[in-house]
Amino acid sequence: MSCVAQSLLQRLPCAGQSSERFEFAKGTQTLGQKLYALSRQAFEQLLQLAQSLFATGQSCEQVLELLMPA
């Protein structure tokens, strides 16, 4: 599970627009960087939820049904 999570996190784009690059050079966090950080945090929490469900003995089908209800 951690290998899959790491692979997915590495695939997320992190490049800002050209105007954001100048703000980054000034030492301020850009909107794109904030959004990227929030996305990573939300995804990490989702993975932690899945990990805890598997730790309690839930099957793959049960976890997937919880994460992606029909």
Rank of each mutant, 00 (worst) to 15 (best):
E65D: 11
L8I: 00
L12W: 09
Y36F: 11
F43H: 05
E44N: 09
Q10Y: 10
L12T: 04
E44V: 00
T56G: 02
E61C: 11
A15Q: 07
L53M: 15
E20H: 08
A42N: 12
L38S: 00
M68W: 15
P13R: 02
G16L: 05
A5L: 04
K34Q: 13
T56V: 05
S2D: 01
E20F: 07
G16M: 11
Q29P: 08
L66A: 14
S7P: 06
S39R: 07
G27R: 01
A50C: 06
T30G: 01
S39F: 00
F54L: 02
L49P: 11
F43E: 02
M68S: 14
A37C: 00
M1E: 04
Q62D: 03
E65M: 08
V63R: 07
L49G: 11
Q48W: 07
L67C: 15
A50N: 00
G32C: 14
Q62T: 04
K26D: 10
S19D: 14
S52Q: 15
F22V: 14
E44K: 05
A42E: 07
S19N: 12
R40W: 09
K26Q: 14
A5H: 06
Q10C: 02
T30L: 07
Q51D: 06
Q45G: 01
L67M: 15
G16E: 00
Y36I: 05
L49M: 06
Q48E: 14
E20I: 04
Q41D: 11
R40H: 07
F24N: 13
F43C: 01
A42W: 05
A70T: 12
Q45I: 07
L46Q: 10
Q48D: 07
A5R: 03
Y36T: 13
A42Q: 08
S19K: 09
T30K: 03
A15Y: 02
A15N: 11
A50D: 02
G27F: 01
F54A: 14
Q33W: 04
L66R: 14
G32D: 02
C60E: 13
E61L: 12
A5M: 08
S59W: 03
G16V: 00
A5G: 04
L31P: 03
A37S: 07
E20T: 03
Q45H: 12
R21N: 01
A25H: 13
C3F: 10
L31D: 08
E65R: 11
C14R: 14
E61P: 05
R11A: 13
G16K: 11
T28K: 06
V63D: 00
